Computed example of a mutant assay.
Amino acid sequence: MTVKIGIASNHLIHPNPRFDTNYVDYVQIGYVDGLRQSGAQPFILPLGLPDEAAAYIDAVDGLLLTGGQGVTPVVYGDEPIQQVAETDIYRDQFEIALVKAAVAAGKPILGICRGEQIINVALNGTLYQDIYVQAGVNGKHNQAPTSWEIPTQHVTTTAGSWLNTLFGERFLVNTFHHQAIHELGDNLTAVAKSDDGIVEAIESADKRIFGVQFHPEMMFETHPEFLKIFQHLIDTVNETV
């Protein structure tokens, strides 16, 4: 069986030099190639209305949620602080609906960076809007201008977790974020943290939902071991059908 994975797309919301006001939905190629090289067939899900989410989930075997803008604080009950950058509530609402539809259908979900955060919010968790202001973080969680494929920060995993099984207790990752998980959502556990205490990976009690705060789609071309994260999604699909 060829595993079909839906990738929730992002969309342009401002004019830019390449497209002007010809707005497009898009997915970075790393997510697509990561799934392809792991044996899955990727399907890009254009941003839609929340009530369309169940139909999209019905058409695929699993869901991949990608990086992008910060999550709108009002969707998890907070007012925005000054450090919040661009948000997109239309994307937030649609992806929250996708998560809930996938959970209802028993289909596996992988979240990457923002994707991990939106899973947490969809399952009634909260976020730090800015880890430097609200969590007192001293570490550097946005490695720019260092090239994105270079791992720059250690994470430590929880014994027996999915990430521990794939990579061991401690390994290097890249990092590009200023928001992160604060209070964990329903039936979610933190299974990896950075040395300054930021949640770097999650897992659900039923093992069908998992996510990472770092970006394997940026690293696997030079560090092929990070394909194992995409492969874990496919393996989980195969285990649940």
Results as ranks from 00 to 15, higher is better:
Pro50Val: 01
Asp51Tyr: 10
Glu52Gly: 05
Ala53Leu: 01
Ala54Val: 10
Tyr56Asn: 12
Ile57Phe: 00
Ile57Ala: 00
Asp58Ala: 15
Ala59Val: 12
Val60Trp: 10
Val60Phe: 08
Asp61Phe: 07
Asp61Ile: 12
Leu63Met: 08
Leu64Tyr: 05
Leu65Trp: 00
Leu65Ala: 07
Leu65Phe: 01
Thr66His: 05
Thr66Ile: 06
Gly67Cys: 11
Gln69Trp: 14
Val71Ala: 10
Pro73Phe: 01
Pro73Asn: 00
Pro73Ile: 09
Gly77Arg: 14
Pro80Ala: 13
Gln82Leu: 15
Gln82Met: 11
Gln83Asn: 12
Gln83Tyr: 12
Val84Phe: 09
Ala85Phe: 13
Thr87Gln: 05
Ile89His: 05
Ile89Glu: 14
Arg91Gly: 02
Arg91Glu: 04
Arg91Ala: 11
Gln93Gly: 04
Gln93Arg: 15
Phe94Val: 10
Phe94Tyr: 13
Glu95Phe: 07
Ala97Gln: 06
Ala97Asn: 07
Ala97Leu: 13
Ala97Gly: 06
Ala97Val: 13
Lys100Arg: 15
Ala102Met: 03
Ala102Tyr: 04
Ala104Cys: 03
Lys107Trp: 07
Lys107Ala: 13
Ile112Lys: 04
Ile112Glu: 03
Cys113Gln: 10
Arg114Cys: 02
Arg114Gly: 01
Arg114Asn: 02
Gln117Thr: 00
Ile118Gly: 02
Ile119Gln: 01
Asn120His: 10
Val121Lys: 07
Val121Arg: 07
Ala122Asn: 09
Ala122Leu: 11
Leu123Tyr: 04
Gly125Lys: 03
Leu127Glu: 12
Tyr128Asn: 02
Tyr128Gly: 03
Tyr128Ala: 01
Gln129Thr: 05
Asp130Phe: 02
Ile131His: 09
Ile131Ala: 08
Ile131Pro: 12
Val133Leu: 13
Ala135Cys: 01
Val137Thr: 14
Gly139Val: 06
His141Asn: 09
Asn142Tyr: 12
Gln143Thr: 04
Gln143His: 07
Gln143Arg: 03
Gln143Met: 02
Thr146Pro: 01
Thr146Val: 15
Ser147Val: 12
Pro151Met: 07
Pro151Val: 10
Pro151Phe: 10
Thr152Leu: 07
His154Leu: 13
Thr157Val: 08
Thr157His: 07
Thr158Pro: 08
Ala159Pro: 04
Ala159Tyr: 03
Ala159Ile: 09
Gly160Lys: 01
Ser161Asn: 00
Trp162Cys: 12
Leu163His: 09
Asn164Cys: 12
Leu166His: 05
Leu166Tyr: 10
Leu166Lys: 06
Phe167Gly: 08
Phe167Lys: 05
Glu169His: 13
Glu169Gln: 15
Phe171Ala: 06
Val173Pro: 11
Asn174Thr: 06
Thr175Met: 06
Thr175His: 04
Phe176Arg: 14
His178Leu: 09
Gln179Glu: 13
Gln179Leu: 08
His182Ser: 12
Gly185Ala: 02
Gly185Arg: 05
Asn187His: 15
Asn187Cys: 11
Leu188Pro: 05
Leu188Phe: 02
Leu188Val: 08
Ala190Lys: 00
Val191Thr: 15
Ala192Phe: 11
Ser194Phe: 04
Ser194Gln: 06
Asp195Cys: 00
